[in-house]
């Protein structure tokens, strides 16, 4: 299991202090596109005002992380194969359980390669206020970063879509 599998995001936490030296930590592993009941655990720990508390948390979290299985992202896409491509959105398939964005990428020799890029379910986008039309854009090139398929060429999982003016949609945490 890698950090990519866990879609690690250091900002994705909240905390609640309970008393002077005790707080409750609820741990949730987050998947890009799926969350899993098995992956959700809670733990209450005492920090005891020392780094020993951190070791307890880290150990528990690592154990919980290791105890869970893989998911669609790591099952299909390889976190060790990041990509960054620039192209024009040719098509958006607004479907579940994952939306597909097809990007026409012009190669150095002038040929055009069509990438099939998978991303979050429609409910994620709806909650974020991203519509199909917003993904389709205005025809100007966009830069997409993500990770490639384990086996399929020109197939990837989207981390971020960046527009020419610098605005971006960050869809995956890692």
């Amino acid at each position: 299991m890698t950090r990519e599998d866990l879609a690690v995001d250091p900002f994705f936490f909240e905390r609640e202090f309970r008393g002077r030296d005790r707080f409750r930590v609820v741990v949730r592993t987050v998947e890009m596109g799926y969350t899993k009941s098995h992956a959700d655990y809670s733990a209450e720990v005492s920090l005891m005002r020392t780094w020993k508390g951190l070791a307890v948390i880290a150990g528990a979290m690592a154990a919980l992380a290791a105890a869970r299985g893989h998911h669609s992202v790591s099952g299909v896409f390889d976190s060790e194969r990041p990509f960054e491509i620039n192209g024009v959105v040719a098509e958006v398939e607004w479907i579940n359980p994952h939306i597909y964005l097809h990007l026409a990428v012009t190669e150095e020799d002038g040929s055009v390669t069509r990438w099939q890029l998978e991303t979050a379910p429609t409910a994620f986008m709806r909650k974020a206020g991203i519509s199909k039309a917003m993904l389709e854009g205005d025809g100007t090139p966009v830069t997409v970063t993500g990770i490639e398929s384990h086996t399929l060429p020109n197939v990837g999982w989207i981390r971020r879509i960046t527009f020419e003016d610098g605005r971006y949609f960050q869809i995956s945490a890692s």
């Binding site: 866990l6 690690v8 250091p10 994705f12 707080f23 920090l47 948390i57």
Partner: peptide
Amino acid sequence: MTIRIQTALLAAAVLVPGLSLAQ
């Protein structure tokens, strides 16, 4: 103390993606 706990949480969060409060 607060800084220490924040640091601890931030470091811990490197290992896991999400922490949240009780419903």
